[in-house]
Every structure is written in structure tokens, then in C-alpha cells.
Design a protein around this nucleic acid. Structure first.
Lengths: 207, 207
DNA sequence: CAGATTACATACTGACTGGTATGTTGTCAA
DNA sequence: TTGACAACATACCAGTCAGTATGTAATCTG
């Protein structure tokens, strides 16, 4: 039928296998932590075996690095930066996205926290390779947020005396803090309290 | 000399040994995570052995529980709640304590984060016993903060339309978020940005 | 089509892990 | 003083871990 150039239907596909491993690793590490997950756990959630794993990643740490660079960092941009393009006022967009991605999130999923924050807390002080990659992702997040805030400031939507970089840092901190506290305190009511406070803060920054 | 009732100078002291283990465990787990530290690591930092460890704690998890209840939770109260008693306006006290305990902290020590937050992020979704104890510590922190805020509101220092419980939740979130972000981004300049934003927020709440 | 190479699968290893079994010695009550 | 027990120390175990050695079949290249 359709076995031309696209859809090769091969039994061996380097790219696809790598993605399969990364996806399984993401879920396992997301729920149980990097140090709490074994390579056998990961390949067990896969149609592949350990041999395949070490064909793709020279070590467990290398897998972790790839996870940050190829899965988590793009996910951050896709979930928290891209959507802001649709808003004239990014502060409105940030609150809306929080409501959508955190407030309406399944509590069972929410108690797992934020994939980026989880790795930061667990691995940043333990391994330098993790540290630099996680730091890069966080700074990128801050910079991209800052970009949108600068635009809003130029449009006269944010008070002229607001330091946008400083505000962007605070906003990223709030994301991590939201996830972190919600992870510790089960009650979803906490989210309403946090969002309410942030909303009040944002109101004082708006012209 | 002084071998009366106090200072027994015994070679075997249940309380002291337990404290020694807890203290060593705290430092090791603080730097490398609960799952990243072995019991042999802990007793290695001690004048005792594995036999002593299992005489005091039936399992590694039990040690973790004791750590939260007997070391970390009291530490939170001592560092973040007690000092507020000296301030008429607790919002001023909170900023001052942050400057003192975070801003003036040795960066090498700061990159390890907050002991409570570390355990929340690593262990809350993994083990239920951890979850409940960590949740209890966080809610206590929020409640105690709320108490001080209520007092300030009654004194007319905080606007009457402020929901103090909501604000207390936000403040605890900010503590965790500060530590978390500083852990990920090495630069101490980030602290200034975060504190600046929080200061601006607090100013809008004050009468 | 043939040989080379890639993309895996299988089986294994030494180091480490949480936990146990058992021995030993301080401490204290009678 | 003397047993009894508490507070450890030592040696060990079965399971797990990251990583390796080696075999094999699919795919590509010429």
C-alpha cells in the first residue's frame, strides 16, 4: 500500500527508538525521580532492551542530559512561552495559562510537580552536567518571558518603572513555587490562594 | 570534677547517639538527596556503626520521617517564624529574614536549597509517609505565618481587604520558590531580583 | 546479491544497597 | 557483686544497580 519513501515501516528505526526511550524515561523519572529510576525500569516500559539503551546513550547521565535538552526545555517553551504570543498583555496570558495548565490539571498528575523543577531540585547540586543544562533552560525561560514583558511595557500596558527582567525572574520563580507547594500540599484550594495573590500583584503593575 | 547527674560522660548514650545519626543524616541527605544517600554513607560520617543505626531506626524511611519531624520542622519554625515575634510588621520581618538567611548566605551552601523543599520535591510523590509529614510541616508554616499576618491586620498595618491565609500561602510559596530558583540558577543577582519584586508587592499591601 | 555495518538482543559482572543475624560490652538495678 | 538487659559492633546476605561482552539479524552500500 504505502511503503514508499515516507512510512518506511522498518523494524529498526534509530530516531523512533530514541524517542521511545526518551518518552518512557521522561514518564518514569517524572514520577519517581532520576535517582529513583533504574535503566531496567525504563527499558521495561519500552519495546526495546538494555542493549538498545546503551546503543543510544553512553551512560544514565547522558540520558538525563538529553531529557533536559530535547524533551523538557522544548516543553517549557511550548507550554509557557508560545501561548503568550496570542495575548496583547502577557500578564493576562500568564494567568490564563496557569489556570489552564495548573488549575485545570488532573490532581493525580499535579502532585508530580513540574518536570524541570523536579530535576533542578534533585540533580542540580549533585551533578555539574545537569546543573549547567538546567540553568540554561531556566535562564532561557526567564529571557523569553522578559521579551514578552518588554513588549508590553513598550505598548504602555505595564508601568514604566517596572524592571521587566526582575519581574520575569519573579514569574518563573512563581511557576516553580506553585508547582512545588502544590506538590507538598495536596489540596487544590491552595492553587486558588496562590493565583489570587499573583493576580493581585499583577494588577498593581498594570497601567 | 563534673560527673554528677549532668554530663554523665558515658560511652553509651541513647539520646546523644540518636542525635549524632540525625545530624549526619541531615547533612548528607541535604546535599545529595534521600535516595542518593546510603545508610553506610550516613554511619560513615558518624562515630557509630550500622548496628547502632538499626538500633535507633527500624528502616531508612523511618529515619527520613524522624528527620522531617525532629530536625527540619523545628528548624523552619526557628528560622522563619520565631524571628517574626520581634517585628510589629511581620512583612518587614519576613523581608529582613530573607535578606539575612538567604541573601547573606554562603553561595556554596545556598546552592543546596532548602532542606524542607528538597524533600518535598523528591519524596512527596514517592512515599506516603513522607507526604503526610511534609504536608504537615508546610501547613504549619503557613498557619504560623497567617497568625502573624492576622495580628498585623488587626493592628491596621495591612489593608483590610487582604486575605491573610491566602497571603501566607503565597509567602511560603515564595520561600520555596526563592530557594528553588537560586538552586537552579547560580547567580546571587537573582536573589536581588526576587526580593525586589516581593518588596514591591508587600508595599502594595501596606496601609 | 554480498559484504559491511548498524541497530539492536541476551547474558553477564562487580560494586553497592537495605536489611539481618549474631556477638560483645557498657550500664544499672537488686 | 552479679546477672540482665540495653546499646551498640561485626559479619554477612540476597537483591539491585549501572555498565559490558558478545551474539545476531536487519538494513545499507557497492
Amino acid at each position: 500500500m504505502s511503503r514508499k519513501k515516507l512510512a518506511p515501516a522498518r523494524t529498526r528505526d534509530l530516531e523512533r527508538s530514541r524517542k521511545e526511550i526518551l518518552e518512557a524515561a521522561f514518564l518514569e523519572i517524572f514520577t519517581r525521580g532520576f535517582q529513583g529510576v533504574s535503566i531496567d525500569d525504563i527499558v521495561g516500559k519500552t519495546s526495546l532492551t538494555k542493549g538498545a539503551f546503551y546503543h543510544h546513550f553512553s551512560t544514565k547521565l547522558e540520558l538525563g542530559y538529553a531529557l533536559v535538552e530535547e524533551v523538557i526545555q522544548p516543553m517549557i517553551l511550548e507550554r509557557w512561552i508560545r501561548p503568550l504570543e496570542a495575548y496583547k498583555n502577557p500578564l493576562v496570558g500568564i494567568l490564563k495559562q496557569m489556570e489552564k495548565l495548573i488549575g485545570e490539571c488532573d490532581p493525580a498528575h499535579l502532585k508530580l510537580g513540574c518536570p524541570l523543577n523536579n530535576l533542578v531540585q534533585e540533580m542540580a547540586p549533585v551533578d555539574k552536567g545537569f546543573k549547567t543544562r538546567l540553568q540554561h533552560a531556566l535562564l532561557l525561560w526567564i529571557s523569553e518571558t522578559d521579551g514578552h514583558l518588554k513588549r508590553a511595557k513598550a505598548d504602555g500596558l505595564i508601568h514604566s518603572d517596572v524592571n521587566t527582567r526582575q519581574l520575569a525572574t519573579f514569574i518563573v520563580m512563581a511557576h516553580e513555587g506553585f508547582y512545588g507547594l502544590l506538590k507538598g500540599v495536596g489540596e487544590p484550594a491552595v492553587f486558588a490562594a496562590l493565583l489570587g495573590s499573583l493576580k493581585r500583584y499583577f494588577a498593581t503593575l498594570t497601567v
